[in-house]
Design a binder for these strands. Structure first.
Length: 805
RNA sequence: GCGGACGUGGCGGAAUGGCAGACGCGCCAGACUUAGGAUCUGGUGCCUCCGGGCGUAAGAGUUCAAGUCUCUUCGUCCGCACCA
């Protein structure tokens, strides 16, 4: 056996079949053992097949899952398919195949590819978001959201391609252009389903303090939610008895508000259309702004445009003076109140606008030169030209101004968030049907829970209609239905849910994937949740990760899940780039196909290379020769079988310290996702085995146990072939002996004034005080000849630094 | 502009304030072999008058000691972006 060459093509399929046949990785609830839930983002089964990026995340958590099992945990490491989505639908349109068939084929392809890599997934718990037995519960959760007032309909602008005449998802808009035809994307207002995620803004923010997420994820989510504290204040509209409400974070600068700006869509414009002398200009400006794409708006950023509202004036409540009102597209209807008080002296945008239209600029915070640029410093500014606020610091003035306004009923404290409500409608076929009916008598009526799942009907064509409606709108016998409330004729909602719907709760379904009475049993949820470790891409931080936290917080609030937060720990992997350092893509011709790689070097070497290639959280270019190096390492491990002699239960004396160090380091490195240094340590260990010229069975066993989470097939094979007893996946994770982490004697550096001048061997237990005696050491004393010793620093086991004159 | 990550050999990268470059790739030399993308051995930061000197984007500082800590400057990548 030991003379056979290392042949992954023979070994790997054998062990994959063994694991499957014996259901080694099937997770079963077991109250007697602690549970551990490892999760990777379930893949979108694209037609292109597995990308080398998938195994990076999968292997990383496979290592954790396998290590946890060896540590005695009951591990859940599931896999599934996030299978609704546009590429499948577009492929179906182009090739006239049913998207369900495309999905089935792609899933089969993906599953086969994943199985070849030997991940310890529990395939008996597979979920598929396009399966009616799954999306039934996606629809059910939507009904719950609706029931609790978190799903509502609203007129919302969507991305619109005027050439294709269809609505586009954000993902389909590339640099402001239509992904399909390249035309500029504009906006069109449509009635859309929305989810009120903004009502959870504070909870989403607070929850971040309770979870172990890597810092960049927390920072990005906080940034995205964008909390800002300030107040809303009323500016009277002269001669009308009405007021314009603004949001500001700088009430301290109110004396410097020399004009107001409204968003072009602000309702006050139409309300006072009769009084406004240039209403036509304002309407024209509004239409022009609406036709602009986001891309164009961003391009225009430098040049402020706007129109004065002639015939209306506002009153600055601080100064009592009348100030002009302008309209400009730099004020957004979607944030705050859609109106601002402009303080050109202390806000860059207002300053530019004031310069462009020759509006007055007043300095109210001293310290800058407001004729040259806006002075926005808040930490050491002093208020001037501001009546009763003069002389106060910015911070003091903020409080004083709010108090003053509150007393007069002109302002209230207010917290705003940048986070927007979630547009939950897509005018598409391949998504979950929204279980709602439009009744001419009762209005919008939800389907009863007993009506679920609302199945996606077969259609002739998956093309969106000319009007931008979903293809479902054309299926009259599906659309026409009866109202669940009054029984009269009614129409079904024809929009479908976005791809983010199914992925917002899939980790809950994994706990109890075949349950037909609930999305998961309370018992299963209580046992498995929360997810202990979730790894995924940074690109999902502000969409999927935030959305799924929102759904989970909601399910917690209505008593369906125990903990508020679904994920205890979140980490992220870096992208794998092509050999040329560019993103892998078909068009760049730098794609590495995982199947080819398994054929060439084997799954274990593939896994080792992906973990060894660099820091786990960083983007890194592929290297084919580096991958072959991983294969070479495993060959060396394999050949250790030829140099095996000695007892099974003991380490070779000369290797005892290194093996103990390796057990400690590899275990700790896995936990910190420092896979590259863990593997480097094992390479060092193997090099030492070769230098010694032979290994004991005990040495080899230790190495195999450490390596088995990364290269499981190879380690199972050697373990079995050498008759080490049982299977390696049943073994306990090795422990190390503190007493053998350092050698009896260590080499230290001797420095003179910080420069290394000698190396000497000293007992490793030599204390800091005793170390100072080393100045009399035979190799040290000569270095001090003719010099005066000023200071002596001995760092045990490290170095001796002698400061001399 | 705001937020985040980062800058170390030819390349990927190591380094609780304590011997910079572990480990791997590549390259060089040799061994074995009827040239093979196999394996093994040795070497591989730069300069050198062979004593040593210089080296972690640049500059300053703290320290017995700085890749690591502090400040300044330059540069790269990612996310958000007219958010009042």
């Amino acid at each position: 056996m030991s003379n056979l060459p290392y042949e992954p093509a023979r070994i790997e399929p054998k062990w994959q079949a063994f694991w499957e046949e014996h259901q080694v990785f099937a997770a079963r609830p077991d109250a007697s053992r602690p549970k551990y839930y490892c999760l990777i983002e379930f893949p979108y089964p694209s037609g292109a097949g597995l990308h080398v990026g998938h195994p990076r995340s999968n292997t990383a958590l496979d290592i954790i899952a396998r290590k946890r099992r060896m540590e005695g945990y009951n591990v859940l490491y599931p896999i599934g398919w996030d299978a609704f989505g546009l590429p499948t639908e577009n492929y179906a349109i182009a090739n006239s195949v049913h998207p369900a068939k495309v999905t089935r084929d792609n899933v089969n392809h993906f599953r086969r590819q994943l199985k070849r890599l030997g991940f310890s997934f529990d395939y008996s718990r597979e979920v598929d978001t396009t399966d009616p037995s799954y999306y039934r519960w996606t629809q059910w959760i939507f009904l719950k959201l609706y029931e609790h007032g978190l799903a509502y309909k609203a007129e919302m602008p969507i991305n619109w391609c005027p050439r294709c005449k269809i609505g586009l998802a954000n993902e389909e808009v590339v640099a402001g252009m239509c992904e399909r035809c390249g035309h500029q994307v504009t906006h069109k207002v449509k009635n859309q389903w929305m989810l009120a995620i903004t009502r959870y803004a504070q909870k989403l923010l607070d929850g971040l303090d309770t979870v172990d997420f890597i810092e960049p994820v927390k920072a990005q989510q906080r940034n995205w939610i964008g909390r800002s504290e300030g107040c809303e204040a009323d500016f009277a509209i002269a001669g009308t008895g009405e007021a314009l409400r603004v949001f500001t974070t700088r009430p301290d600068t109110m004396f410097g508000a020399t004009y107001m700006v409204l968003s072009p869509e602000h309702p006050v414009i139409e309300r006072f259309a009769q009084r406004i002398e240039n209403i036509r200009d304002l309407r024209a400006y509004r239409e022009q702004a609406a036709a602009k794409s986001d891309f164009e708006r961003a391009e225009m950023q430098k040049d402020k445009t706007g129109v004065e509202v002639v015939g209306l004036k506002a009153v600055n409540p601080a100064t009592g003076k009348e100030i002009p009102i302008w309209v400009s597209d730099y004020v957004l209807m979607g944030y705050g109140t859609g109106a601002i008080m402009a303080v050109p002296g202390h806000d860059e945008r207002d300053w530019e606008f004031a310069k462009a239209f020759s509006l007055p600029i007043v300095e109210v915070v001293a310290g800058g030169d407001v004729t040259q640029q806006a002075y926005t410093e808040i930490d050491d500014g002093v208020i001037v030209n501001s009546g009763f606020l003069d002389g106060l610091s910015v911070k003091q003035a903020q409080e004083a101004m709010i108090a003053w306004l509150e007393q007069r009923g002109l302002a209230t404290r207010k917290i705003n968030y940048k986070l927007r409500d979630w547009v939950f409608s897509r005018q598409r076929y391949w998504g979950e049907p929204i279980p709602m009916v439009h009744c001419p008598v009762c209005g919008v009526v939800p389907l009863g829970e007993d009506q679920l799942p609302l199945l996606l009907p077969d259609v002739e064509s998956y093309e969106p209609t000319d009007s931008g409606e979903s293809p479902l709108a054309a299926i009259t016998d599906w659309v026409n239905t009866t109202c669940p409330r009054c029984g009269g004729p009614a129409r079904r909602e024809t929009d479908t849910m976005p791809q983010w719907a199914g992925s917002s709760w899939y980790f809950l379904r994994y706990c109890d994937p075949h349950n037909s009475r609930a999305f998961a049993s309370q018992e299963a949820l209580d046992y498995w949740m929360p997810v202990d470790w979730y790894n995924g891409g940074m690109e999902h931080t502000t969409l999927h990760l935030l959305y799924s936290r929102f759904w989970h917080l909601f399910l917690h609030d209505i008593g369906l899940v125990r903990a508020p937060e679904p994920y205890a720990r979140r980490t992220s992997h870096g992208m794998i780039l092509g050999e040329n350092g560019e993103k892998m893509s078909k068009s760049r011709g730098n794609v590495i196909n995982p199947d080819d790689l398994v054929d060439e070097i084997g799954a274990d070497a593939f896994r080792v290379y992906e973990m060894f290639m660099g820091a786990f959280d960083q983007a890194i270019p592929w290297s084919m020769s580096g991958a072959r190096g991983a294969r070479r390492f495993l060959e060396r491990v394999w050949r250790l079988q030829e140099m095996l002699s000695g007892p099974e239960d003991a380490f070779s004396p000369g290797l005892r310290v290194l093996i103990n160090q390796s057990i400690k380091k590899v275990g700790e490195d896995y936990e910190r996702m420092k896979y590259n240094t863990a593997i480097a340590q094992m390479m060092t260990l193997v090099n030492a085995f070769y230098e010694q010229g032979g290994v004991s069975a005990g040495d080899l066993k230790a190495l195999l146990l450490l390596l088995s989470p990364v290269a499981p097939h190879l380690c199972e094979e050697i373990w079995l072939a050498q008759g080490f007893g049982g299977y390696i996946h049943e073994q306990a994770w090795p422990s190390y002996d503190e007493a053998y982490l350092v050698d009896d004697a260590v080499e230290i550096a001797v420095q003179i004034n910080g420069r290394v001048r000698a190396r000497i061997m000293v007992p490793s237990d030599l204390g800091r005080e005793a170390g100072e005696e080393l100045v009399r050491h035979a190799q040290v004393a000569p270095l001090l000849e003719g010099k005066q010793l000023v200071k002596c620093i001995y760092v045990p086991g490290r170095l001796l630094n002698l400061v001399v004159k």
